[in-house]
Design a protein around this nucleic acid. Structure first.
Lengths: 146, 146
DNA sequence: AATCATGTAACAATACAAGTATCGTGAAAG
DNA sequence: CTTTCACGATACTTGTATTGTTACATGATT
């Protein structure tokens, strides 16, 4: 399967929106993401439904942030875009009749659950605001013009 | 993408082979896995190349274990079947020009790397022999006939 | 009324594991 | 030494998910 980049893309967009006055159009965002405006709308629809962004039609319309970035975590965004499967590996049958297969699946699923718990904890611990601040810090450290 | 079940399947097969005298044919294994003999040969080719199993042609031929199960970890098997990507999510561009995207990718990749390290450590810490023993223990605990 | 922008539906492209069919090759059995 | 068995290898097709694309409807602004 192709790798799901929706979380990455939405974080990218949100950080740009946080540093941008006024709404941004799907067309503009699509250029940033090097993709299609329809893909942008499709993906951001999830964020809108969750209340993290707002969209307006017509002249001067587009997308704008609609939530306190301190209160939204990376995990929230992951879930807002559909909370896709995290792992590309797993077991074939959920409830196998074979006892050997049961044992194998249990061992594997244990390990996967642990890794998933860690990842979820990491994503849940970082807010969009913190991510934006760490970006600012990186710019200062790198001598970036403000 | 469809979930990769090669590791799960190969562990299933190896545990059966450990409790089985003489070689097992691809046809027999395919029935266990509820799949096709060609899929079995294709997947087990990796294990053969790594020296974990051996295959023989002709009458009485088939697959047999060719290594000390105490010395082979679940991680070894994962790698032998191609060491596929573990995560289904990730970032789109490896080296983005956009500084914001760089920051986002770094934050995400950090979290993914940590989770991957945990998973790899877990898989690397369990040998096939240990997995087989834990299966035996489970059978005894469940009152399984030996 | 014209324009701009989102909303939605439908469909093609892409990627990759898995499934399938077929033939070749070598080893054992008769 | 011919048949049979089993792997080896190739060339597809299928299934499933994201992503890309086209087209058109809808609502808001000028």
């Amino acid at each position: 399967m192709r790798k799901d980049s929706r979380l990455s893309r939405m974080l990218h967009v949100l950080l740009h929106m946080a540093r941008h006055d006024g709404p941004m159009t799907s067309e503009h965002i699509a250029q940033m993401l090097q993709t299609n405006p329809v893909v942008v709308r499709r993906t951001m629809a999830g964020l809108r439904d969750a209340g993290y962004v707002r969209s307006e039609k017509g002249h001067g319309g587009g997308w704008a942030i609609a939530a306190d970035l301190d209160k939204v975590s990376l995990l929230d965004i992951h879930r807002a875009v559909g909370g896709p499967t995290l792992f590309a590996i797993g077991s074939e049958h959920a409830n196998p009749a074979c006892a050997v297969e049961q044992a194998v699946n249990e061992a594997l699923d244990d390990a996967l659950r642990e890794a998933e718990a860690l990842l979820v904890a990491r994503l849940g611990a970082v807010s969009l605001a913190e991510l934006a601040r760490s970006f600012d810090a990186r710019c200062v450290a790198g001598g970036w013009p403000h």
